[in-house]
Write a protein that binds this DNA or RNA. Structure first.
Lengths: 336, 336
DNA sequence: GTTATAATAGAAATCGTATTCCGAGGGAGC
DNA sequence: GCTCCCTCGGAATACGATTTCTATTATAAC
């Protein structure tokens, strides 16, 4: 057990170390009898090559990086990331890649984390999430030629490899649904205003209103941070308006739920007085009362495509197409 | 940018590569003037050492492994793991370690994953969760002398390094609380029966009943898998008993919530007819109605201690003590 | 002035695997 | 029987940083 490297295997099998390596890498330039002999010894001793040495030699760590821009507390409540992480892991595993997750809350630590992962070559590529309109990370990574895939959107569309939900389309669909079910004063509570996803869903919302000839009222739009209080206080503000909104579209389930809970505290009946809709169709939606109507984003599909694309990039194949859209669907429940 | 290795830095600074390395590693055996000269070049070019080469040379990857025994779907709904993962990442980052997360659902894939992480030396150590009574992983890792820390419990207590909530104590406390608030037929719905945590909480529950002279009724105890349905159907069974239970202690929030929802479907009033209590105090608890009373487990503290302990082990310091207990506290809400 | 001692920097070996380059050997073709 | 070609396996090297060993110089002590 002590010494278990290729050269030991080679010694025991009576061949050179190079041959052991060739056998293990499936190099065809090796005689069948010899291959068997080597494999027998490998099996017997349960030898597995050292990943650290492989990394140095091949210049590949077989590690994919994912950086989440949240503090631990904020991550805990958000089912989106757990699902995303798990799906990426599963998919990466199929190609013998592993996932390295990091968190970075502040802008400074973000820079540091990306810098480190990139420069130290600790990971072979990155999956980016929560993109902003002018995203420094993206410009940086692009100019360095580092392999990465964005889950989200970036202009121009073909500048980077990306996978995205159809955010504009989904927000359009759900807003359209609200209008068709009789709602007229529909509010939108987004996440942080800089995020592309906040803007895209706002866009779909506006487009849908326009398509029905409903004027866009900026007083019905608010932005919340990733904490419960800000969505709740946005809801309080909305309730103080006259007339009150009759529907609220939250940028994600947590925002919608916080808003809905706040509304109920104010004695609002859901969905009679106000309808609520969220995004992500998290398990949460089914536990609350009334259960929350939500736009189901296909997180596993998103993760799968992003991972596939990234691995292709890492291994030198140009992905085609460079941008993929995953459709979303509305899951109707009691709240709208 | 093309060539950015120590030897380049050395050339530009007019020193040997060894000196560059010494400067970067903070080796005191180097003249101040030379140190400055090297640092200037390093700064100027933004050189950072290659983690792959460091890994091979130092036999350390500075990577910690965590394997979650869940499928993606099951992970998504469970706030425990997101919180745990995020907290481990934060703590590891303070020591310049990163986290590599893997999932493995089946026993076979579990074996394969651990085998791979261990044998390939891809990670320097492991954090284990969801331990079972006779856990093969633990025996294996122990006998190989591989650094690992268990979040959970294993007999005998000093056999392995571990961090744990006071599960027995917490279950005792909450059961005691239920009895004191007038409940007499208290049910317990555990997770998978093989898990230590399922058993420990059951133990605390039994101890508390006994301390009040209440007989232990096996019909009031059920075990659920990590999916909503099994907890719900366990609840249905409990409701068919006469007399019905007047309180339910769920082994985690998801189990408690699924059971509570099922009970409400059957027209049970909560907490008047039946009280519900969960474990983990996840964000979920505050969104449901009635809000769920839950035992708050200090996940960040758990993660912090486990990570500290593991890094100590990796770096050759024997942690003392080898077992740490993190207290839990009851968060009272509407459901009990 | 000479030797002992410390301080410092360079040369070289090392970590474990992948791969390039060569030489040896065998078979085919004439 | 000879040449040519092809196959196969071994030796050597590269990957990029760390560390041991060694050589040089400066300094101190006498």
């Amino acid at each position: 057990m002590a010494e278990l490297k290729q050269v030991e295997i080679a010694r025991l099998a009576g061949v050179s170390q190079a041959t052991v390596s060739r056998v293990l890498k499936g190099n065809p330039q090796v005689n069948e009898a010899m291959r068997q002999r080597v494999l027998a010894v490998v099996q017997e001793l349960g030898y597995v090559p050292d990943a650290r040495a492989q990394s140095l030699r091949s210049q590949r760590t077989r590690l994919i990086g994912l950086v989440v821009h949240r503090a631990a507390e904020a991550l805990a409540g958000d089912p989106f990331f757990s699902a995303l992480i798990a799906s990426i892991i599963e998919q990466a595993g199929r190609h013998d890649y592993h996932l390295c997750v990091d968190t970075a809350r502040t802008a400074r630590s973000q820079r540091a984390v990306y810098e480190e992962l990139l420069r130290t070559r600790r990971v072979d590529g990155l999956i980016l999430v929560e993109s902003e309109t002018r995203d420094k990370r993206i410009e940086r990574l692009s100019s360095e030629g580092f392999p990465f895939v964005l889950i989200g959107r970036y202009d121009p569309a073909d500048a980077v490899c990306s996978v995205d939900n159809d955010n504009i389309g989904a927000a359009f669909m759900v807003t359209d649904y609200l209008v068709r079910t009789g709602r007229r004063r529909i509010a939108y509570i987004g996440g942080p205003a800089g995020l592309t996803v906040t803007r895209d869903r706002l866009q779909g919302y506006r487009d849908a209103l326009e398509s029905h000839g409903i004027g866009y009222d900026p007083h019905l739009v608010a932005f919340a941070g990733f904490n419960e209080r800000s969505a709740a206080s946005a809801m309080t503000d909305l309730l103080s308006q006259t007339p009150q909104p009759d529907a609220v579209l939250g940028m994600d389930d947590l925002i919608a739920l916080s808003a809905m809970r706040e509304a109920k505290r104010h004695g609002v009946r859901v969905p009679d007085d106000i309808a609520f809709v969220g995004f992500n169709d998290s398990p949460l939606c089914r536990y609350v009362e009334p259960s929350l109507t939500s736009v189901a984003v296909e997180i596993p599909a998103l993760a799968r495509k992003a991972t596939e694309m990234l691995i292709a990039l890492i291994e030198g194949h140009e992905p085609n197409p460079r941008r993929q859209i995953v459709p979303a669907r509305l899951v109707k429940r009691e709240s709208a």
